[in-house]
């Protein structure tokens, strides 16, 4: 780099740029948090949904699936599972019917032995997730 561009100038760009763009990011984040209530479906955060999210986490579902596109890419997207599997009944029936020893030669979801209450909570959580305004993502029902 040319001699006219000094180390002090580079340093000032670093500190000035970092502070400016971090503050910009904070301002955008603040705005996001303030407009989220219109998009994040918090009105439907029922007790069952909260329990469902905890079950989702405690069984590490994100280790195979994506949810709104984030997670692992081994198993189908679940942000729209509510639509794809035909509502809560479809979700619960699918989870319930997984064979304990898997399916020979193929990927299979483990059998978690959930109670009916837990199945309902998970289905409620996935219903709530499907109603978050995700800017029309995924592109189609296949996720």
């Amino acid at each position: 780099m040319s001699q006219a561009f000094t180390k002090a100038m580079a340093r000032n760009i670093f500190y000035g740029g970092t502070v400016f763009f971090f503050l910009l990011f904070l301002a955008l984040s603040l705005d996001t948090v303030s407009v989220l209530p219109e998009r994040d479906n918090r009105a439907n955060l029922t007790e069952a949904v909260v329990q469902g999210k905890k079950l989702w986490e405690n069984n590490n579902c994100i280790g195979c699936h994506t949810l709104l596109g984030e997670g692992a890419y081994f198993a189908p997207e679940l942000g729209n599972a509510f639509t794809r599997l035909g509502g809560k009944d479809g979700i619960m029936a699918f989870i319930k019917s997984r064979p304990v020893d898997g399916i020979p030669g193929r990927r299979s979801m483990p059998q978690f032995n959930f109670t009916d209450e837990q199945l309902n909570a998970l289905a409620e959580f996935l219903k709530y997730s499907s109603e978050i305004n995700s800017a029309n993502w995924p592109p189609n029902v296949q996720g």
Binding site: N60, C61, I62, G63, C64, A72, F74, A75, V100, D101, G102, I103, P104, G105, R106, R107, S108, P110
Partner: peptide, 15 residues
């Protein structure tokens, strides 16, 4: 898909 299942399921190995 069933390699090491159900002893080490995919999510555990990925973690």
């Amino acid at each position: 898909g069933d390699f090491l299942f159900p002893e080490i399921p995919f999510n555990v190995a990925r973690m």
